[in-house]
Structures are given as C-alpha cells and as structure tokens.
Simulated assay, not measured.
Amino acid sequence: MDFGETKLLDANGQSVRLWFIGFVLAHSRYKYVEWSASPFTTRDVIQAHENAFEYYGGMPKEIVYDQDHLILVSETTVT
C-alpha cells in the first residue's frame, strides 16, 4: 500500500492536483487504486482498505505500508 499525488491538466487546461492510494498484491501483481481531489483522511484510508479487500475478494495475511509515518502522524484536518 502506498500514497501518491500528481498534477494533471483538466479539460480547461488548468492544473489540478490529485491524490491516490494504491494497493498491489505481491504475487499476482493485481492492483487497486483510488483517486481523490483532496488529501486522504484516516476515514478515507480505512474505506479504501475495505474497498480494496472487497475488490480482491478477501484480505491478505500481511500488508506492507510505504510511508507509514503519514498514517501515524499526518492526519488531514477536515473543517
């Protein structure tokens, strides 16, 4: 599981920032990604996990997190 962000051009040629969370199964290399127009909150991350498990049809025995410090200390404040 890993987080990322990118900048793309919208239909009007304006730059927009998108955030994503991605999951890759180690042996099969099956991938699952969710996109967001705003940074992920803890609630979003939990929901993305549940959605990925549903997509895969189950839950792996082990999950390896890249940039796990973001999960632990960098909660996005929702106003």
Rank of each mutant, 00 (worst) to 15 (best):
D2M: 05
D2R: 02
F3N: 08
F3P: 10
G4N: 13
G4W: 11
G4Q: 06
G4P: 13
E5A: 08
T6W: 00
T6P: 00
T6I: 13
T6H: 03
T6M: 13
T6Y: 01
L8Y: 07
L8S: 05
L8K: 02
L8Q: 03
L9D: 08
L9G: 02
L9P: 00
D10N: 15
D10M: 01
D10G: 01
A11E: 14
A11T: 06
N12L: 06
N12R: 11
G13D: 10
Q14S: 11
Q14N: 15
Q14F: 03
S15D: 11
S15N: 03
V16T: 12
R17C: 13
R17N: 13
R17E: 15
R17F: 04
R17D: 09
L18H: 13
W19I: 05
W19E: 06
W19D: 08
F20D: 03
I21S: 00
I21M: 12
G22Y: 00
G22P: 04
F23Q: 03
V24C: 10
L25G: 09
L25N: 04
L25Q: 07
A26M: 09
A26Q: 12
A26D: 12
R29D: 02
Y30E: 15
Y30G: 01
K31C: 12
K31D: 00
K31E: 10
Y32D: 06
V33S: 07
E34F: 04
E34I: 12
W35G: 01
W35E: 04
W35N: 01
S36Q: 13
A37R: 13
A37Q: 14
A37Y: 12
P39W: 06
F40M: 06
F40N: 08
T42M: 14
T42C: 14
R43S: 15
R43H: 15
D44I: 09
D44V: 07
D44M: 13
V45I: 15
V45C: 13
I46F: 09
I46W: 05
Q47D: 13
Q47G: 02
A48K: 03
A48E: 06
H49Q: 14
E50R: 05
E50Y: 02
N51H: 09
A52M: 09
F53A: 01
F53S: 06
Y55H: 15
Y55T: 01
Y56V: 02
Y56D: 02
Y56G: 08
Y56A: 11
Y56Q: 05
Y56K: 01
G57D: 10
P60T: 05
P60H: 05
P60D: 11
P60V: 08
P60C: 07
K61L: 12
K61C: 02
E62Y: 00
E62F: 00
E62H: 04
I63S: 05
V64T: 08
V64G: 03
V64E: 08
Y65H: 15
Y65L: 15
Q67I: 11
D68G: 10
D68E: 15
D68K: 09
H69S: 12
H69W: 04
H69V: 11
L70S: 02
L70I: 07
L70Y: 01
I71R: 03
L72G: 00
L72N: 04
V73N: 07
S74E: 09
S74M: 03
S74V: 02
E75D: 11
E75S: 08
T77H: 08
T79W: 03
